[in-house]
């Protein structure tokens, strides 16, 4: 699956500023709204928070994958952000998270939605990729590392 079909240079951010789980999710949803990728900011924020309430999406080695499903989006919307200082995300290994991958997919339309999340996760499950990402200086660096372009 080609990541660049879903990711765009406007939805990768090297400089997430919030220092809490709720803050990171809100900030990413806001930035998606500003980039024109979503229209209904509040609905999207709610579905991501709802999913987070069921089980934290903080994984291991500093990776978190907040996501949700809503018919407020027509097709898969995805974003990747970094907060190099680290944020407590109730991760499985208890360590702070630095790399955040967010997806919002349409609830009723079929498509490779979770598969996208899985592909990005697979990519950054390689320690070398994570190091590369955390060394990124610009938004475009992230895009290049993830899509290979």
């Amino acid at each position: 699956m080609k990541l660049k079909k879903v990711l765009s240079p406007e939805t990768v951010w090297v400089d997430l500023k919030s220092d809490s789980k709720q803050g990171i999710i809100e900030e990413m949803v806001d930035r998606l709204f500003l980039a024109g990728k979503i229209e209904n900011r509040d609905t999207i924020l709610q579905v991501v928070l709802d999913r987070e309430a069921k089980m934290s999406t903080g994984m291991e080695n500093g990776v978190a994958i907040p996501h949700g499903k809503s018919d407020a989006v027509e097709s898969l919307v995805a974003a990747v952000g970094l907060n190099k200082a680290g944020v407590d995300f109730n991760a499985m290994d208890g360590r702070p998270c630095t790399i955040f991958i967010m997806t919002v997919s349409p609830a009723k339309r079929a498509g490779p939605h979770i598969q996208f999340l899985a592909e990005v996760s697979r990519l950054i499950s390689q320690p070398a990729k994570r190091e590369q990402l955390l060394a990124a200086r610009t938004h475009l660096d992230i895009y290049t590392i993830l899509t290979g372009k």
Binding site: R51, M55, L117, A118, S121, R122
Partner: peptide, 15 residues
């Protein structure tokens, strides 16, 4: 190499 997708889809269904 494909376990991510299987595990993630299954997790969503478990939830």
């Amino acid at each position: 190499v494909n376990q991510h997708v299987a595990r993630m889809i299954l997790l969503e269904e478990l939830l």
